[in-house]
Write a protein that binds this DNA or RNA. Structure first.
Length: 644
DNA sequence: GCGATCACGTA
DNA sequence: GTACGTGATCGCT
C-alpha cells in the first residue's frame, strides 16, 4: 500500500514554461526565506513533546473531556491507504495545545472501531469547537464511513496556506519546514519507500505510529496558529472563512456521493472502437508501406517527414523532434491521405484509453459509483481541479466523444440528472470589471455576444454577420480573456499576424473600456505585485517586471486572465456552498455530484425536481451579483449528454 | 519503476 | 493567448 496522505504531494510538478534563466536575477517578490538549511531543522528528537496513547475506553473518555473543554482541537486520521472512499481507519490523533497530543489506535474489527468513535462523537458533533486539520476533506471522508460527520467550523491549514500563497506547495512537511523550522517524521520511515511495495500503516508498531500520528496533529495545530495570524494582513480572511472553508465539506459530500456509470454501454463502445481502430491501423500501415507504432510521435514523425516527405520544412518540437500535434497535422491534411487517418486514429485511441476503458476500472467496489477527488489547493487562479479520475475533461466536442457523456447516468430509476451552467461567464465578468459600456449593453440587451462583437469589428448589421465572421469574433472574445496577442489569434483562426493585429485594434476601438481595463490590470500587478478577484483572491506575479520579455509577457497575460478566471471560480464556489446548504437544510434526497468550472451536475430525485431546479437556478444566478445580468442554462436528462 | 516528452481531453 | 490531468512512449536507473 501507498503513502498515507495526499498531503505529501498536492501540486503537479511545477511546469517551467520558460527555460529559466532570467540572468539569475531575483525579482522584488521572490522569497528566499523558504530555503531553510536542512541541518537547522528541528525534529521530534530534539524537541520536547508529550505524545500519549489512549487505548482503553477510560483513557479515550479522558481525551474527550479535554477536547470538550477546548475552544479548538486538531485531529488527524491514519488509514490503510490514500483513497478516502476505500480505506480503513487505523487510528486517530488529537491535539489541543502545542507539543502535546494523543493517539487512539483503531482495531481492524469494524464494529470495535465504531464503538471507539461513538465515544469521540460528542467532540466531533460540537459546533462550538473549531476543528483543525490538514487536508480535512480526506479525514471527513474516512470518518463518514464510520458514521462520524464532524460539525463545523473548520480550519484547514492546507486551505489557509492556499489562500495566502496559491502558487506555493501546501503539504504539511513543506509548511512545517517553512513556518515552524521543523521536519516531521517521514512516512517512509514507517512504511518504506514509495517504489518497492510500500508497507501498510496497519502493520506499523504502536510506539512508532503513535509518534508519527501525534506529531501530525501537534504540528498541524501549531501551523494553524501561525497561519491564522497571517490571514488578516493578506486580506484573505473573508475568502478563507466564507468561501474555501465552507466549500470543503461541500466537496467532501460530492466526492462521497460519486456518480454512476453505465458500464455495459462503455464496454460495447469499447468493442466498437477496437474494431474501428484495427481497420484504421491497417489503412495507415498500407499508406505508410510499413508497420510502426502509430502511438509513438517519434516513429510517426519519421514516417511522415522522412519517408513520405509530406512537408519540406517540418515544424520541430522543443526537443528537435518532428511536431505531429493536431494543429500541425490539420494543416497538412491535404498533402497525403494518411494524415486524416492518423487524426482519426488519435481521436479514437484517446477516447478508448483515457475514458472508455479506464472509467469502468475506477468504479468503487463499496458504492458501485465513481468518486473523483477535487483538489481545492492546486490552481493558481482559484479553480478546482479533479483527479482519479479527472471528471472535468470528459469529452463533449466530437460526436464519438459525446458517447462517453451518455454513460454518466442517474443513481437509480427514481433519479434524473440536472445540469446547470453559466452562460459566457468569463466575458460577463470582464464586462462587469471593466465597465465597458458597449459590452455591458450587449449583455443587457441579451444579444448573441459573439455575433454582436462580429457586427462591431466587421462593421455590419448584426443580422448580416456571417458564420465565418462570428467564428472569428468568438476567437477574439476568447483571446481577450486569455490576454490576447496578434500571434496567438493569427494561429487560432489561420490568418496572418498583421490581419490579426488589425482585428484586435478594431476590437479595442469598439470596446475601449476593455483595453483600459487590461492596461489597468497590468499596472496594478506592477505596482502591488499581485492582482485579485472580486472576492479578493490574490495572484502574485513576480515576473511582471522581468527583463525577459517572454516571462514578462506571460505575467502580463496572467494579470489579465487571473482576476477573470478567478472571479468566475469565486462565483461558482459561492453558488455551491449556498445550494448545498439549501439541499441539506430541506432534507432533500438530491445531490450535487460534479463541478466543471462553470457547470454543476446534480443527481436529483425525480419527485424533488420541482423544488431543486428553481433552487439551483436561483442560487447560481445570484451567487455573486454583477452589474450586468448573469444567465444560467439548466436542463434535465437520463444522462449527462442529454442534460447538458 | 521513474520522469521527461508529446499529445489531447475539458473550461 | 489562460487554467488543468492523464495516457503512451522512451530513455534512464
Amino acid at each position: 500500500l501507498k503513502a498515507l496522505f495526499n498531503e505529501l504531494e498536492f501540486r503537479t510538478l511545477a511546469k517551467r514554461v520558460f527555460n529559466e534563466p532570467e540572468d539569475g536575477q531575483l525579482t522584488l517578490f521572490e522569497e528566499p526565506a523558504e530555503e531553510v538549511e536542512k541541518a537547522e531543522l528541528r525534529t521530534i528528537r530534539n524537541t520536547q513533546h508529550e505524545y500519549l496513547v489512549a487505548d482503553t475506553s477510560d483513557k479515550i473518555k479522558e481525551v474527550v473531556e479535554q477536547l470538550l473543554q477546548a475552544q479548538e482541537f486538531c485531529f488527524d486520521t491514519e488509514t490503510t491507504g490514500t483513497d478516502a472512499n476505500n480505506c480503513e481507519l487505523v487510528g486517530l490523533s488529537f491535539a489541543v495545545k502545542p507539543h502535546h497530543a494523543w493517539y487512539i489506535p483503531c482495531p481492524p474489527d469494524y464494529n470495535q472501531t465504531l464503538e471507539i468513535l461513538q465515544i469521540l462523537k460528542p467532540a466531533f458533533d460540537n459546533p462550538g469547537i473549531l476543528k483543525v486539520g490538514q487536508n480535512m476533506k480526506f479525514d471527513l471522508t474516512v470518518l463518514h464511513y464510520y458514521d462520524i460527520h464532524p460539525a463545523g467550523p473548520f480550519f484547514d491549514t492546507m486551505l489557509a496556506h492556499y489562500v495566502l500563497e496559491p502558487e506555493q506547495r501546501h503539504n504539511m512537511d513543506y509548511l512545517a519546514r517553512v513556518y515552524l523550522n521543523y521536519e516531521p517524521v517521514s512516512i517512509e520511515s514507517l512504511i518504506g519507500q514509495k517504489g518497492g511495495r510500500q508497507g501498510n500503516m496497519r502493520d506499523v508498531e504502536l510506539s512508532l505510529i503513535k509518534e508519527y500520528a501525534a506529531e501530525d496533529a501537534d504540528i498541524t495545530l501549531q501551523l494553524k496558529h501561525k497561519l491564522s495570524s497571517l490571514l488578516p494582513e493578506a486580506g484573505a480572511e473573508k475568502l478563507f472563512n466564507e468561501i474555501e472553508m465552507p466549500l470543503m465539506p461541500v466537496l467532501t459530500s460530492m466526492e462521497i456521493q460519486g456518480v454512476k456509470i453505465d458500464v455495459e454501454n462503455l464496454q460495447q463502445f469499447s468493442r466498437d472502437l477496437e474494431k474501428d481502430l484495427f481497420s484504421i491501423e491497417n489503412e495507415i500501415y498500407q499508406l505508410a508501406g510499413e508497420r510502426f507504432n502509430i502511438a509513438s510521435p517519434r516513429q510517426l514523425g519519421i514516417i511522415l517527414f522522412e519517408k513520405l516527405k509530406i512537408d519540406d520544412k517540418p515544424k520541430l518540437t522543443a526537443t528537435k523532434q518532428y511536431a505531429t500535434g493536431e494543429d500541425v497535422l490539420e494543416k497538412l491534411s491535404g498533402r497525403h491521405p494518411i494524415v486524416e487517418k492518423i487524426l482519426d486514429y488519435r481521436e479514437l485511441m484517446k477516447l478508448k484509453s483515457t475514458y472508455v476503458d479506464t472509467l469502468p476500472q475506477m468504479i468503487n467496489p463499496r458504492t458501485g459509483r465513481i468518486h473523483t477527488s477535487y483538489n481545492q489547493a492546486v490552481t493558481s487562479t482559484g479553480r478546482l481541479s479533479s483527479t482519479n479520475p479527472n471528471l472535468q475533461n470528459i469529452p463533449v466536442r466530437t460526436e464519438r466523444g459525446r458517447e462517453i457523456r451518455k454513460a454518466f447516468i442517474p443513481r437509480n430509476p427514481d433519479y434524473i440528472l440536472l445540469a446547470a451552467d453559466y452562460s459566457q461567464i468569463e466575458l460577463r465578468i470582464i464586462a462587469h470589471l471593466s465597465g465597458d459600456q458597449a459590452m455591458q449593453d450587449a449583455f443587457r440587451f441579451g444579444f448573441d455576444i459573439h455575433a454582436a462583437t462580429a457586427a462591431k469589428i466587421f462593421k455590419v448589421p448584426i443580422e448580416e454577420v456571417t458564420r465565418e465572421q462570428r467564428r472569428a469574433a468568438k476567437s477574439v472574445n476568447f483571446g481577450i480573456v486569455y490576454g490576447i496577442s496578434a500571434f496567438g489569434l493569427s494561429q487560432n483562426i489561420g490568418i496572418s499576424k498583421k490581419e490579426a493585429q488589425l482585428i484586435i485594434d478594431e476590437y479595442f476601438r469598439q470596446y475601449p473600456g476593455i483595453k483600459t481595463y487590461m492596461e489597468k490590470s497590468i499596472a496594478t500587478a506592477r505596482e502591488r505585485g499581485y492582482v485579485e478577484t472580486i472576492m479578493g483572491r490574490r495572484r502574485y506575479l513576480p515576473d511582471i517586471n522581468s527583463v525577459n520579455a517572454n516571462m514578462r509577457g506571460f505575467a502580463e497575460r496572467n494579470a489579465i486572465n487571473a482576476p477573470i478566471q478567478g472571479s468566475a471560480a469565486d462565483m461558482i464556489k459561492i453558488a455551491m456552498i449556498n445550494i448545498h446548504r439549501e439541499l441539506r437544510n430541506r432534507n432533500l434526497n438530491s445531490w450535487m455530484v460534479l463541478q466543471v468550472h462553470d457547470e454543476l451536475v446534480f443527481d436529483v430525485k425525480r419527485t424533488e425536481m420541482d423544488v431543486v431546479k428553481p433552487l439551483v437556478k436561483e442560487m447560481m444566478t445570484n451567487a455573486l451579483p454583477l452589474s450586468i445580468p448573469v444567465e444560467v442554462d439548466i436542463n434535465t436528462g437520463e444522462n449527462w449528454l442529454e442534460a447538458h
